[in-house]
Design a protein around this nucleic acid. Structure first.
Lengths: 150, 150
DNA sequence: TTTATTAATGCAACACTGTTGCAATAAGAC
DNA sequence: GTCTTATTGCAACAGTGTTGCATTAATAAA
């Protein structure tokens, strides 16, 4: 099954309408799966495509809804606009948590996701102390190899 | 040596003036060492004390300066105003990084700092790949024990 | 296919956090 | 006490995001 079809399926099963704006947002996210996009960037890409005109507010509302439906992830970096990215196909609409672990270069601003994760150990300790429903956000910043060597 | 004296010493050694507003900000932070305060809260506490009147903008500027001078730490939580806290006496003005590891309850909003940290392992891997000047921010959210059991 | 219903949208206005420019004030050097 | 200028207060602005409400369009029903 294609991702776009799964997204439409999720909308339908939640009694939400398949609107042009929702399709446009989904398409932009699909075309930029390797990136983290801000609401503003998504809005501009829709505008540029000229396929359909819409309002920035609608983009905000749709992104908020998509996060609720677990279609996308919202990633926050200190003092910046939230960045969004599509979840993997098999996790679309599910409660499976995506790990949010990013390195961000303080110079060239590149954002590199990384997969190794030791946080579960900390979460295990918290769970053993009575904490529940744990989720986390980890952000490592510094200089990437390119910026370190120049 | 007292913390307040060390703060004034840092200001002097950086050729910055000891002003009433800077003293007020330092005093509020000292009186609330166990908490993380927002700029707005610090401003209100100064206003309430009536010891001295000042502007919100000055508080912003002073906090920014104090962060630069490594007198305080700036802690960011998703979509919220930055929260500030004094550093430990022996770390005031030094480059020693404070670990920022917080648990935040999604229900009662309590923020609990925790000390155990596995992040250095991730940072070690990044350093071995050529990354430098690493710093991090980790935020774990969920329900605290009290909220979990009620 | 047309009509009716109402979810979704566009627009304007607002809210929150934080920043900037500049004239007035006050810290502290002399 | 006077002078210099760092610091402040004020007003205005900027970025991100939200809310209320009248209009539009997606979809169910006729």
């Amino acid at each position: 099954m294609k991702k776009i079809d799964r997204i439409l399926e999720i909308l339908k099963s939640n009694c939400l309408r398949i609107t042009q704006t929702r399709i446009s947002v989904a398409e932009v996210l699909l075309k930029n799966e390797d990136k983290l996009l801000t609401s503003e960037e998504i809005f501009q890409l829709i505008k540029d495509s000229k396929a359909h005109k819409c309002d920035q507010v609608s983009v905000y509302r749709i992104l908020t809804k998509f996060v609720e439906l677990r279609i996308i992830e919202k990633n926050n970096f200190q003092g910046e606009a939230s960045k969004y990215s599509l979840r993997e196909l098999d996790k679309l609409g599910t409660k499976a948590l995506k790990h949010e672990h990013y390195f961000k270069c303080n110079r060239c601003q590149i954002i590199v996701p990384f997969t190794r994760c030791y946080v579960p150990k900390m979460e295990k300790e918290l769970r053993e102390s009575g904490y529940t429903n744990l989720e986390h956000h980890l952000e490592i910043k510094g200089l990437c190899p390119d910026c370190s060597s120049s």
